[in-house]
Structures are given as structure tokens and as C-alpha cells.
């Protein structure tokens, strides 16, 4: 039976009169990757702060690894790994020193920094001061730091924001590996492509509320419109683009006509992206 790693019920946080997180409820299973998607200011970071025990909820409850975070945050934090949105490393220290410090805080016995640094592609520069690292290297070191205690739940806040493709790919691989080995991953991002690639389920958060929560494929089926996009050369020699909806009664006939009357140049199916769906549900884009 699948264990629930994270469970929230009517989780709410208010900054004065502003409700940043508004009665959100969801569960995340062990080993699952949940993409938590929303534009800036939607309440993602506040939600993560409550889930990781950095903030006490104004209302509702949050349980992580079966323990109430209000009462047992420090016990649970022993099993959490958190990678923050903004770089918060000790830049005057080396990568090894950063990792060793956190290993001591987690009381990890016989900690070896080098294999972990190798995993995130930082071996060879492990003794250099972090201040000299590029943004991508710092982000990868943050991920390594989050993995120091071999966490059961990993919180990643915009882990690939502004990174080069190589760094992003390294981080994606580690997320997949962690999930395979049973680590629950709570992935906060506004990169829909990343979320689509990595997440078992995605939750859309907008103005503090969860507006949709399901598998990406289900959301696409539910809210998207599948089409066949074809490029044809007509009888009079002009080139046209035709979008044929795939789920309608006349689809087969329209597709047949592509081969009968015109010269078909290219054809491929198109699905609605998560971004399209988010826009459809919330009426706003993810960058807004």
C-alpha cells in the first residue's frame, strides 16, 4: 500500500489581510513527484515554507511523513531535503565544507562529500570557494546539499530557473533518480515543460488556491484540445496550414481529404501544453 508522505488539509497562511495560501488540501504519495505550478506571487513559496516547518500555518493542518509539522517540525526535518529558490550557500567556504557542515547538522555518519559532488557534476572544483562558482554550479551544489541526508522528502523550489541546458539536465536526472529510489519530490516551478517532463502529478496554484490537481496527461485530456496540424500544397500551388480537431465527428473525413485533394507536405498531432491549460483554468499566464 502506498504511503502518504505529505498531506495538507485547508492549509492557509495570511500576511495581515492578505491570504497568501487559501485553504489548500492535497496528498503526495511516497516516491511521487508533484509539480507545484503557479506564477510569481501565487503562494508557492509560502506553501513550501509551511510544508517544511519554516512557517506556522494560520489555519489548517500539514502532515509530513505522518507527523504534524506544527508540533514535530524538527523531528521531520531530519528527513527533509530543501533546495531554495535563491542561492543561500556559504560562499566563503568550499563545496566540500558546505556539504560537510550540513552533514554534521543532520548527524550523518561517515559522510563523503565527493561522491555527491560527482553526482551533481562538481567534482574537480570541490575545494574552490563557492563564490567563484557560476549560477548553474551553485544551483547544483544546493541540490547536493539537499541530498546530504539522503532525504525521504525533497523540496525543490525553482531548481533550474535560469540555468543552462546541461545544468538543468543534471538536475532533472537527479530528480528522476531520487523518485525511483522512493524519495518524494515536491517540485515548485513555473516551467511547465519541466513540470510536464518530471511530474507524476501537477497542482496549479493561483492566488493562493489550488485550481487543478492531476496527472499532466489527464489535465491535457480534460482541458486540452488535440489537433492534427497539417501543411498542404493546394491544387493552385499555395501552401496552407490546416488544424483538424482529433476528437470530433468529422475528423476522419477531414483527414481523408488531406490525402485526396491536396498534396500533404507535413503532418503531426498537437496537444495543449500545461501552460495553455493553466491559462484556460486561471485566465492568466505563468509569467504574470
Amino acid at each position: 500500500m502506498t504511503q502518504i508522505s505529505i498531506s495538507t488539509s485547508n492549509l492557509t497562511y495570511r500576511y495581515g489581510n492578505l491570504t497568501a495560501v487559501d485553504h489548500i488540501s492535497f496528498d503526495v504519495s511516497e516516491g511521487e513527484v508533484l509539480g507545484f505550478l503557479g506564477p510569481n506571487g501565487a503562494g508557492k513559496t509560502t506553501a513550501v515554507k509551511m510544508l517544511t516547518g519554516q512557517l506556522q500555518p494560520s489555519e489548517g493542518s500539514v502532515t509530513v511523513l505522518g507527523k504534524d509539522m506544527r508540533k514535530h517540525a524538527k523531528q521531520v526535518q531530519q528527513f527533509l531535503g530543501v533546495s531554495f529558490e535563491t542561492t543561500n550557500l556559504y560562499e566563503q567556504m568550499s563545496a566540500v565544507e558546505n556539504l560537510e557542515l550540513f552533514a554534521r547538522l543532520f548527524s550523518v555518519k561517515n559522510f563523503m562529500a565527493l561522491p555527491l559532488l560527482e553526482k551533481v557534476g562538481l567534482s574537480g572544483r570541490e575545494k574552490e570557494r563557492v563564490a567563484n562558482y557560476s549560477k548553474g554550479m551553485k544551483q547544483r551544489l544546493m541540490l547536493a546539499r539537499a541530498l546530504v541526508n539522503n532525504p525521504r522528502v525533497l523540496f525543490l523550489d525553482e531548481p533550474t530557473d535560469g540555468l543552462d541546458p546541461v545544468s538543468s539536465q543534471t538536475i532533472h536526472n537527479i530528480i528522476r533518480e531520487s523518485s525511483k529510489s522512493g524519495t518524494t519530490v515536491f517540485l515548485t516551478t513555473h516551467d511547465m515543460v519541466e513540470a510536464d517532463k518530471l511530474s507524476d502529478r501537477v497542482a496549479f496554484i493561483n492566488k493562493g488556491k489550488i485550481t487543478a490537481l492531476d496527472k499532466p496527461a489527464v489535465l491535457k485530456r480534460q482541458f486540452g484540445k488535440r489537433t492534427l496540424k497539417a501543411e498542404v500544397e493546394t491544387a493552385n500551388g499555395t501552401i496552407e496550414i490546416r488544424n483538424i480537431p482529433l476528437d470530433q465527428a468529422g475528423t476522419a473525413e477531414q483527414a481523408r481529404l488531406l490525402f485526396m485533394d491536396d498534396k500533404l507536405l507535413t503532418a503531426h498531432t498537437e496537444e495543449a501544453s500545461l501552460e495553455d491549460i493553466f491559462f484556460k483554468i486561471t485566465g492568466r499566464g505563468l509569467t504574470g
Binding site: T52, G53, Q54, Q77, F84, T87, N88, F102, L105, F106
Partner: peptide, 14 residues
């Protein structure tokens, strides 16, 4: 300022 305190305080450190 650098947020390192937040990183420390999501560990078992009280």
C-alpha cells in the same frame, strides 16, 4: 541577508 539562516533552520538545528 543571504538566506543561509533559512537553510540551517530547515535542518534539525534548533
Amino acid at each position: 541577508e543571504r538566506g543561509t539562516a533559512s537553510a540551517l533552520l530547515v535542518t534539525p538545528l534548533r
